[in-house]
Amino acid sequence: MDHENVTVTRGTRSTLPIIVAVHSTLLGQAIGGCRIAHYPHWRDGLTDALRLSAAMTDKAALAGLPHGGGKTVVALPPGRTLDAAARRDVLHDVGDVIAGLGGRYATGPDVGTGPDDMVVIAERTGHVFCRPAAAGGSGDSSEHTATGVLAALRAICADRFGSAVLSGRRFAVLGLGRVGAHVLRMLAAERAILTVADVDETRRAVAGDATWVSPEECLTAEADVLVPSALGGLLTPATVPRLRCAAVAGPANNQLDAPETAALLHERGILWAPDFVVSAGGIIHATAVELHHETTEQATTRIAGIASTLTGILESARATGTTPLAAARTAARLRLG
């Protein structure tokens, strides 16, 4: 394990497993979201925290941020729900653990948390970002993440099809949560042809004129680009042979079940954009505005740079005969020294 620090403790108020993984502070304070999710066992949450924090180091490095990677995971047992009081206890427990790290790590929203939760964590530690604008923060990062996804989609279409124009292209958007819904809206505005799905049937209300299908059908839909926008791990040796797309690019974290799966995509001629590059828009905006006090215009310019970063990675992969994953990790290691 190459992490600098991993804390696993039982919350003093909630009694739930609180996991905080700090992967690297080489470039500066580690950053990464706070995830509250169900896991079969708390060790599965630990595995998630280790993988996500390492990916965040690469994400920050490739985005040009003066930060390293970290992650918080609260591992809920199957079937466990949180009422308002229990949720507050969990968030205070998280804040205490982060405070104990002495500034080495700051957290923001992730799966299962939002800007309002960051306000509660901030009652215990100042090392938090993406609080609501009314509370002095940078607000919900999901739209900025989606803006970065659009930049990445233009870059991957330019590389794969010779044109960055999204109009008339077929996209399969799998997952219509906060980020996925924004991506769908932006693609619809570009007049793309859309197939969409979510495990939550109520999300059908945001599908608009897009074709609604089951998650399994969306994963294997005939499309130019598959856009994974929910939880990770969907690209596996079992699913890759069934894909019917030319490229994969989306904001879901840890899309590959294992690094070796990148080679399977490469062998099939499916161009995969590393998720830690595609999904960087939210963290770029939040850290630029809230932690480094840049203007919104400066942050927007940084987000647009995701396109050139991804283009460089794809060109490097092609020139060296490697996968985009290998090229991205090489680029990140170069920045980390």
Rank of each mutant, 00 (worst) to 15 (best):
R51M: 01
S138A: 07
G112V: 10
A223F: 04
L314S: 06
V20K: 03
V173D: 15
V74I: 10
V22N: 03
I98C: 09
L325G: 09
R191M: 10
G32H: 07
A262K: 01
A60G: 09
V22W: 03
S308I: 02
A146C: 12
L27A: 14
H127E: 10
G321W: 11
P40D: 15
P132D: 01
R244L: 01
A133K: 02
D198Y: 04
G103T: 08
D48G: 00
E201Q: 13
T195C: 12
L52G: 00
A286F: 05
P324K: 09
G175L: 11
V278L: 00
S142E: 09
R268S: 05
A63W: 10
I36L: 12
H266F: 08
A205G: 03
I156R: 01
L226V: 13
D83P: 04
R268K: 06
D58Y: 14
D93A: 04
A37D: 15
L314M: 03
R35C: 05
A273T: 08
G282C: 01
P274H: 12
G68H: 01
T147V: 15
R318G: 13
L336H: 14
D257F: 11
T202H: 15
S316I: 00
H41R: 11
D93F: 06
D200Q: 13
R170W: 11
H127M: 10
L76E: 09
G11E: 09
H127I: 06
R87V: 08
V128T: 12
L231K: 13
D159F: 15
G175T: 11
H92G: 13
D96R: 15
S308C: 12
S229V: 15
G250T: 09
C34Y: 07
G69R: 03
M186N: 14
H67Q: 13
S138W: 04
T9C: 02
T323E: 03
T322M: 05
R160C: 07
V97D: 02
G232L: 10
R244E: 06
I98W: 04
V6T: 10
G33M: 03
L265T: 02
R185Y: 03
G126C: 05
R204Q: 12
R80D: 11
C34H: 12
A210C: 05
D110Y: 00
L310K: 07
L150E: 08
L27C: 13
A146D: 08
